[in-house]
């Protein structure tokens, strides 16, 4: 009763931010990146255990953001900053105004744009699960971007329409990829999988607020 946990991500240290940037720019190898991230995950797990939480997360240290990180794992995607995407938006001044009104830093927030046929090059979070599990005896929660979030954010008409034609066709592929991942996590014994669907609120609330979204 009253089981305690957290929703997923943890503040990144300066070292981790540097590793993320260097990895993105191809300045360090995957192994060097993982060495940096593993240390951060170890500390985050220890903090949660010391605090007394019941279900442990890895802090999402390896992720650029909670949904863009899939570009590392999924074929047919490209990591694009919102600033880069400005070229693809019809209403440029409206998009820029929205980013500024919502306090969204266009260069620091990146989107996983679908630019080709989607398939899992490697598991999205199975390795993260195995690593956390090696650090704790407690149940572990793994967070994944929800299928609605991905179906909305990955579709950028100029890039995606020629690949999938319709958003729903791309959505079927997103479902397949997430289902494969869930099955892998289930087989590995993962106790808790959380899908993140923050854009659901955007779908019903932004009209009331007279706003658009960047996701």
């Amino acid at each position: 009763m009253f089981t305690t946990t957290q929703v997923g991500s943890w503040p990144r240290s300066k070292d981790m931010l540097r590793a993320l940037r260097d990895r993105r720019l191809g300045k360090i190898s995957r192994a060097e990146f993982d060495r940096a991230a593993d240390g951060e995950v170890r500390r985050t797990v220890r903090i949660q255990e010391e605090a007394g939480l019941d279900v442990i997360v890895d802090g999402e240290h390896r992720r650029d953001n909670f949904y863009s990180f899939i570009t590392e794992k999924v074929e047919g995607t490209r990591l694009m900053s919102l600033a880069e995407m400005l070229d693809e938006v019809e209403d440029k001044s409206g998009f820029e105004e929205m980013l500024s009104t919502l306090d969204v830093p266009a260069s620091a927030i990146r989107n996983p744009t679908c630019v080709g046929k989607l398939s899992r090059r490697e598991p999205l979070a199975l390795d993260d699960f195995k690593f956390v599990k090696s650090l704790t005896d407690k149940p572990v929660k793994i967070t994944l971007p929800g299928p609605y979030l991905l179906t909305r954010s990955m579709w950028v008409t100029n890039y995606t329409k020629k690949v999938y034609g319709t958003q729903r066709k791309m959505g079927d592929e997103v479902v397949r990829i997430l289902r494969e991942e869930l099955i892998d996590l289930a087989r590995a014994g993962c106790e808790f999988v959380q899908f993140d669907e923050p854009v659901l609120t955007e779908a019903v609330m932004s009209e009331d607020c007279g706003r658009r979204t960047f996701m």
Partner: peptide
């Protein structure tokens, strides 16, 4: 279950 409202660093 008791948890945080969201993560502490969803965007690195």
């Amino acid at each position: 279950f008791l948890n945080t409202d969201c993560g502490f660093g969803c965007f690195a």
